[in-house]
Amino acid sequence: MLREYLARSGLSAGEARQVTLVAIPPVSGEQALRQGQVEVSALGGVLRDKALERGGIRSLFVDTDLFGQFTGGAYVLRDKFIKDNTNASRKLVEGISRAIEWAQTTPPEEVRARFDKIIAERKRNEDASSIKYWKSTGVASKGGLISDSEIQVWIDWLVKDGLFKPGQVKASDTYTNAFNYFRPGKTAEAR
């Protein structure tokens, strides 16, 4: 995202190469920024909201400023695991897709209340303070259905960076919605 932001902000490829990218764990990003170890830190979701609430830093951009509403990540299962555990794979993906859809269609305060209840009932001495920052699943499509356009963003970046050749990878070959509860073609009766 940072490279895309730099390019859209008018930096030439040479100027953008002068920016040193450093991999740090997301939970350490705010600390690295505040201690001056980095000039910019990629903070997302709760980590970003907590850091902004503490003050002294500002947001430059969020990924949706660059690409609109999209899902930036996905659950991944190996082909062999799916083949060897088809029923478990189907149940896992269907359950996740239904949970995503529930959170997408339920008022945020009700979702946060459910999170609070789950954590309290587990009795694991967990810190639930970050729940107040929850806004959404961050998943753009109903039930987490994946689309070619969401995958194509990543392919285009890899082509631009020279890691893929144009046409080397076809987005539709990299994912399946076959087990998603809301997959196209699944009838309401089958749900």
Rank of each mutant, 00 (worst) to 15 (best):
Ala103Gln: 12
Leu163Phe: 11
Asp156Tyr: 08
Ala88Met: 14
Asp156Cys: 05
Ser97Leu: 06
Val169Phe: 10
Ser172Gln: 02
Asp148Leu: 08
Tyr133Asp: 06
Asp148Ala: 14
Asp116Val: 08
Ile118Cys: 02
Ala103Tyr: 01
Val139Gly: 08
Leu163Trp: 10
Trp157Gly: 03
Ser97Gly: 15
Ile96Cys: 03
Arg124Asn: 08
Glu110Leu: 10
Trp154Gly: 07
Val153Gly: 04
Ser147Glu: 10
Gln104His: 00
Ser130Lys: 10
Glu94Val: 09
Asp84Gly: 06
Lys135Leu: 14
Glu101Leu: 10
Ala128Val: 03
Lys132Asn: 01
Ile119Pro: 01
Arg124Ile: 03
Thr86Gly: 04
Lys132Phe: 04
Ala171Gly: 01
Ser147His: 15
Asp148Lys: 11
Gly143Leu: 09
Glu101Asn: 14
Leu92Lys: 00
Glu109Arg: 11
Gly144Met: 04
Phe164Lys: 00
Ile146Lys: 04
Ser89His: 13
Arg124Lys: 13
Ile118Asn: 07
Thr106Val: 03
Tyr133Trp: 15
Gly95Val: 06
Ala88Asn: 06
Ile146Arg: 01
Asp148Ser: 14
Ser129Cys: 07
Glu121Gly: 02
Leu145His: 02
Lys160Arg: 11
Ser147Gly: 03
Gln104Cys: 02
Gly138Glu: 10
Ser97Trp: 12
Arg124Ala: 13
Asp156Phe: 06
Gly95Pro: 05
Thr105Ser: 10
Lys117Ser: 14
Asp84Val: 10
Ser130Asp: 15
Ile151Gly: 00
Lys160Gly: 00
Ala88His: 09
Thr106Pro: 01
Ala103Pro: 03
Arg112Asn: 04
Ile151Met: 12
Glu101Asp: 14
Lys165Glu: 11
Trp154Tyr: 11
Val169Pro: 02
Trp134Asn: 02
Thr105Asn: 14
Asp156His: 04
Glu126Cys: 03
Asp84Gln: 15
Gly95Arg: 01
Leu163Val: 12
Arg124Leu: 14
Val169Met: 12
Pro107Gly: 04
Ile96Tyr: 11
Ile151His: 05
Ile118Asp: 12
Trp102Gln: 07
Thr86Arg: 15
Leu163Cys: 05
Trp134Ala: 11
Leu145Ser: 02
Asn125Glu: 11
Ile151Gln: 03
Arg122Lys: 11
Asp156Ile: 07
Val153Ala: 00
Ile131Ala: 09
Asp127Gln: 07
Gln104Asn: 02
Ser141Leu: 11
Gly167Leu: 02
Ser89Tyr: 12
Gln104Met: 03
